[in-house]
Simulated assay, not measured.
Amino acid sequence: MKIGIPKEIKPYEYRVACDPNGVKEIVNKGHKVLVERNAGIGSGFTDEDYKAQGAEIIDTAREIFAKSDLIYKVKEIFPEEFAYMREGQIIFTYIHSNAHREQTDAMIEKKIIGIAYEDVDDKDGEFPLLKPMSIIAGKGGFLAALNFMQKIYGGNGILLSKIDGIRTPEITIIGAGNSGVGAAELASAFGNKVTVLDIDVNKLEAARKVLPPNVEFLYSNRNNLEMCLKRTDVLMNCILWPKWRKDHLVSKDMLTIMKNRALIVDIACDEGGAIETCKSTTHDDPIYEVNGIIHYCVDNIPSAFSQTATQTLCNATLPYLLEIADKGVEKALKDNKYLRRGLSFYNGKLTLKETGRKQERPYITPEEALGI
């Protein structure tokens, strides 16, 4: 199979789908890898690094798409790339189709086979292709909080660390999953008072076993959430909100009970999601204010740590990529029910329920699409 790795075109996106070590693994399996010129520069990998491992360097994204059976990416397909796609081509990336109606239209029209990293799960109900980025996003979100609580960046001038003789800052983290634990790990290491909220008692118990004593674990109900909102300096949202829900965990009205110029860091960046006032921002314009509360909602935090993110993402996605390349996409999807759950599009049909519900368009199951 011919695997194409284009350069990401989202502003301030420095990751690449595969590092040179991953290319070597693909080539050793007998497949061909095409890498767009300078695709790895943002992550510290040169064209020569890729060539040394057997990749062919291609000048343009148009050529990459034209010559490749499978497109291996990080971010979704952008409008500039729609024309490059062709019928039957496999797109393997973070698709997030529910948030991008135009992309959904294009993939259906082009009869693409789209497999979304974010929806592939495993036997434990976890999301292995989200996990590495979630951990980095959680840690990076706390580092962003350190930055934007500084007075010079518009914050209250609070150092998020325990300092003798003064009140210890408080950090509230919604969600005890991978990003929540990642955020809590750094926040607690700096000596802050950290509270983690979740409705899953098992997740709270698992997090308690790996986090230090200055982390409090609370069941996420209305009273506990409001108590935390009143006292917290930083609120970090680390949960994904069901795309079809119209309500919110933290409404705009609830911002009035928070401290003036407290900071919200939304790791999930679900627009209109768990936090009503959150909307995606970028690394070059990362914050905005609503009712006196600062919001940081950068939707690709891991890009700031591009080399680390690329390497961990490649490690996670590569086994699935090789399964598709070795078996062919149809057999791989039929054989692996976990991979199949990532199928968003198949030959002109939408196969992801949450996108169908959110965008109010027809969909079928992956099993129906594959005839199994």
Rank of each mutant, 00 (worst) to 15 (best):
I3E: 07
P6C: 06
K7V: 14
K10G: 13
Y12W: 00
E13P: 01
C18A: 13
D19N: 15
N21M: 09
G22F: 02
E25F: 00
V27S: 12
K29S: 14
K29D: 11
K29A: 15
H31G: 09
A39L: 11
D47Y: 04
D49P: 13
A52P: 06
D59G: 02
T60V: 10
R62M: 10
E63R: 08
F65D: 05
K67F: 10
K67R: 13
I71K: 01
E81V: 09
E81P: 13
F82E: 11
F82Y: 15
A83E: 15
R86E: 11
R86S: 10
I91S: 02
N98F: 15
A99C: 10
D105Q: 11
K110I: 06
I112D: 06
V120W: 05
K123Y: 13
K123M: 09
D124I: 03
K131I: 02
G138N: 08
K139S: 02
G141E: 09
A145I: 04
A145Y: 05
Q150D: 05
Y153P: 01
G154C: 14
G157N: 09
G157W: 14
G165K: 11
T168E: 03
E170Q: 14
T172F: 01
I173M: 06
G177T: 02
G177P: 04
V181Y: 02
E185Q: 09
A187P: 08
G191E: 12
N192Y: 13
K193C: 05
T195E: 03
V196I: 14
L211E: 00
P213E: 14
N214C: 07
L229H: 01
L235F: 05
N237G: 15
C238S: 10
L240Y: 15
V250S: 01
K259P: 02
L263K: 04
A268V: 13
I275D: 02
C278N: 11
C278V: 14
K279D: 09
T281Q: 11
T282Y: 12
I287D: 07
Y288I: 03
Y288K: 04
N291C: 01
I294N: 05
Y296R: 12
I301A: 00
P302Y: 05
S303L: 03
A309F: 00
L313F: 07
L321W: 03
K331D: 13
K331E: 15
A332E: 08
L339Q: 01
R341T: 02
R341N: 14
L343C: 04
L343W: 12
F345R: 03
F345A: 08
K353P: 01
E360K: 15
E367N: 14
A369R: 08
L370A: 13
